[in-house]
């Protein structure tokens, strides 16, 4: 974005103002995440930077809150993490299966009422979570699935499928259907064609949709608040309770772990996106 040498002074000034604004906005976006890191190593119990931390005194830092997170007495994080992973993994599998099938159907040009059906399938993403929460709670209560893992997994499948539908439909939009016809003409049955030809090509879209579904489930708190009993507590629920009642530094230790996890997910999602674009022959 270097300016040409003939730029007038006032545009030059304007350009620097613009860059300053952008810097400020990027800072606003990313800086809050970095506050959590140093504070999670705080040796004291307060959620402010102590004098020692400001002077970089090594005694002011400790792993105390990480130890508390893992070994703390009566600590809920172990159970919460176990539940969160179990629920998220099953919800992701369910979302991927239902969402990919639906996306395959929706991408067919023979699909009747495409617009209406697409709008219905995407709706859980658009409808405010609190309303989804109330509706799903009414259903689960009637079905006797409230306060069970099954109920929460089903709820997260509802919330996760729109992402899979969107990403897989997007991948299929650049899909060359002549390859499946070629497979068929060579004697392959539809299931075989799907497994050997279609799936490998749309896999990046499927996985990135799955990542979205995983994160949605792993991060979801509104619906779980309605559905979960004591046994089904998840990481977001524990964070929610902690943030409401007492903000302890242990929460920051958990938050740091979650930021690391989301960094991992971000990197995988980016790599997948690039691979998908390469596979579909989109050059950038």
């Amino acid at each position: 974005m270097a300016l040409p040498s003939y730029t007038e002074t006032r545009y030059r000034i304007w350009h620097y103002i613009y860059l300053t604004i952008c810097t400020f906005v990027f800072f606003f976006l990313i800086a809050p995440l970095f506050v959590i890191f140093p504070l999670s190593f705080n040796a004291e119990e307060f959620l402010v930077f102590s004098e020692g931390m400001k002077n970089l005194d090594p005694d002011a830092f400790s792993l105390r809150w990480y130890k508390d997170m893992i070994y703390g007495t009566k600590n809920p994080w172990g159970l919460a993490a176990k539940n969160s992973f179990i629920i998220a993994i099953f919800a992701t599998i369910g979302s991927i299966i239902l969402g990919t099938l639906a996306a395959l159907g929706l991408s067919s040009r023979h699909m009747p009422y495409k617009g209406l059906i697409m709008a219905t399938l995407i709706s859980p993403m658009i409808v405010p979570l609190i309303i989804s929460g109330v509706a799903i709670f009414f259903f689960m209560a009637k079905a006797g699935l409230a306060a069970t893992h099954t109920g929460i997994v089903l709820a997260h499948i509802i919330l996760g499928t729109p992402f899979v539908v969107i990403t897989v439909t997007a991948t299929l939009s650049g899909f060359d259907h002549s390859v499946t016809r070629a497979a068929a003409s060579l004697g392959s049955n539809p299931v075989n064609t799907f497994m050997k030809i279609t799936l490998p090509l749309i896999l990046p879209g499927v996985i990135s949709g799955g990542l979205f579904a995983f994160v949605t489930s792993f991060d979801e708190v509104v619906v779980v608040l309605f559905l979960a009993g004591l046994e089904n507590t998840t990481i977001p629920i524990q964070m929610w309770t902690g943030l409401r009642e007492q903000l302890s530094p242990t929460i920051l230790a958990v938050a740091t772990c979650l930021i690391l996890l989301s960094t991992l997910i971000l990197i995988s999602a980016e790599l997948l996106r690039r691979r998908s674009e390469r596979l579909r022959g989109i050059n950038r």
Partner: peptide, 15 residues
């Protein structure tokens, strides 16, 4: 832009 997008809502609220 993407890191906050992928980070837990509760983590961002906590920060």
């Amino acid at each position: 832009v993407l890191l906050p997008f992928w980070t837990s809502l509760l983590v961002r609220t906590a920060s």
